[in-house]
Design a protein around this nucleic acid. Structure first.
Lengths: 190, 190, 190, 190
DNA sequence: GATGAATGAGGCTTCATTCAT
DNA sequence: GATGAATGAAGCCTCATTCAT
């Protein structure tokens, strides 16, 4: 039996990629990522056939990670407001606790190297939340906007909110709820 | 593109950079930009000492351009809602009419190569609009959020709205006003 | 290809190397050869200390193989023409039936990685045929050319002939005999 | 006016490539070639977009070079034998005087990196000689073999002859004429 | 001023070989 | 013995920048 491929190594590379891309953008070198992962440069290519694949896998993993954070404790039977608020809080909390993940995600999102397929797959596996968001839009004043509008909006508003939280950590909690109120008002019924 | 006259060369390079960066991201090569500008490779460096400077200058120019669009016809003496709506419409219109500028802007905004100073300078020169935005926040339910919050929020929400407009051009006008209502509701007084 | 039994592994690797080198040249990767042999990457190096040795061994094996084809049914007591014709036919038939072997051979022959020693050894073990070839030269009009001349010439002319056969399979048989006549005339007595 | 592209540099690279490929095969590194040409590695790619192109251009140049040697002093109005002998002598002389060119040519010829188009183009521009070769075949005993047969055969037999010449330089002249007699006999009328 | 040829550092990727299991 | 994960040197190529003309 050969040396078994340590599942850790793949994870280490993704972790290192998150950090490095957060700092240097998608232009971060594979050498730099490998080094940050304490792995030989060639090893990176045993786990990911090329840089594009690494980028796309990372996008996928980050989405998954974010989703886990959002799904944990999701109040499936709670009121619409409760459910939406859970999503908001979970997302903002995830973003604030994992600044590198959040920044890497931003870089990947605007990169032309993430394929459409990857982006589409990134939407899936998040049914409860998606449903809540769609109900939210459908019952609110933006009822005829595309279904993805609310989710995109949440991301965008959360991003803005987090920028304020980072700028003034003392008021972070307050900003988080204020941000939520803004989001809720933006789309809720008149 | 014909060879630009001497005085135009700088502008031609910036125009070419906008287009090229919109397509290829910040990684676009200086040679590619020079070619798109119908200018010699070396000439680019007579107008910009290095690529970073070109990137920062471009960011600045794009902000200026956007601002001009917003200032033109600004209803200084109109109601707050009129003024805010003007900003919203002007921004969305600018973004839809100049997709390359908008995409280049997005790329630059997330790039680590734009300095903090450039970002700060990008805020200035937009007093009427800024003042309107601050009044808007101050008088609304987000009164204790940082002053930049509303502007950032507008940008973010407009981005989301434009994505919907691009996806469904037939409803573009409707989406633009729906987006504005959402924005207004997000921050206006309860 | 099923995983070969232990004893066959060396043969399987050589077989795979023939095919792979025929297609990709001497630059074919050891990993690719191992895969084609349905053998682990590392296993290749248990049978051949390094790639150069593999190449040289393969050259040797192919020569041996070709020789077997030529020796089978060799008319030891036949006329000189009969014997020479047997060599010609056997060689051309071998080349046409084993295009991969022939192509691999060509690649190896021009490669700088085959040592002089390997090349020399490649000549041996073919006494009857060699003797016939030497008689042929000695009694013909090229009597003072080096002994290897006739064999080399045969190879070269057969190669040319096979190219024609491949290009026009319908006339293959005819080309084979025409080629032989050319070879015979080239060196036979005036 | 920028520094003009010195025509010499391209030639120097091709010269260096000839030498390096003759020694190391098509696997010769671009770095090695650049170094042998006393040129920066990047410069090589200003003259040839990639290694494949360099290889194909080199093939073309070598064919051209060989052709010049063959065309010089071609006895257009001489007897068929005179013309064929001129071709033979010119080719063998070229090969013996330019061993690197000849060896590089052999490597390129068997390489899969030379495209079919390049090979075809390599045939052209050599009309007088081609015509002579075709007459030779048509009037001889191989009259129904493909037109390219005689040229290929000449190359192959010349190669073999040159190997003998290199092995025994003292008899080089003798071998050259003996080789020609063999070639002539191979295809001439019975 | 303008040009684009020249450069070499650095990027991504492949690969022969080693070695823990 | 067999395996394939791990490695880092080396390969091809790109690119920002310089500088002779």
């Amino acid at each position: 039996m050969p040396r078994p491929k340590t599942g850790d190594k793949r994870a280490a590379i993704l972790r290192a990629a998150t950090k490095t891309i957060a700092e240097d953008g998608v232009g971060a070198s594979t050498a730099g990522i490998a080094k940050a992962a304490a792995v030989a440069e060639g090893s990176l290519f045993r786990y990911f056939p090329d840089k594009d694949r690494l980028l796309n896998e990372l996008y996928r993993e980050l989405k998954l990670d974010m989703r886990s954070a959002m799904i944990a404790g999701f109040p499936v039977t709670g009121s619409l407001r409760k459910r939406i608020q859970h999503i908001w809080n979970a997302y903002v909390t995830w973003g604030m606790e994992s600044p590198a993940k959040r920044r890497a995600m931003m870089q990947l999102t605007v990169s032309e190297r993430i394929t459409d397929q990857t982006r589409q797959e990134g939407q899936s596996g998040f049914e409860d939340a998606t449903e809540a968001m769609q109900q939210f839009v459908a019952r609110g004043k933006l009822s005829d906007l595309p279904p993805a509008f609310a989710s995109d909006l949440l991301l965008a508003m959360a991003e803005t909110t987090m920028a304020s939280m980072v700028a003034n950590p003392a008021k972070a909690d307050h900003y988080r709820s204020a941000g939520f109120e803004a989001f809720w008002s933006a789309a809720a019924k008149k």
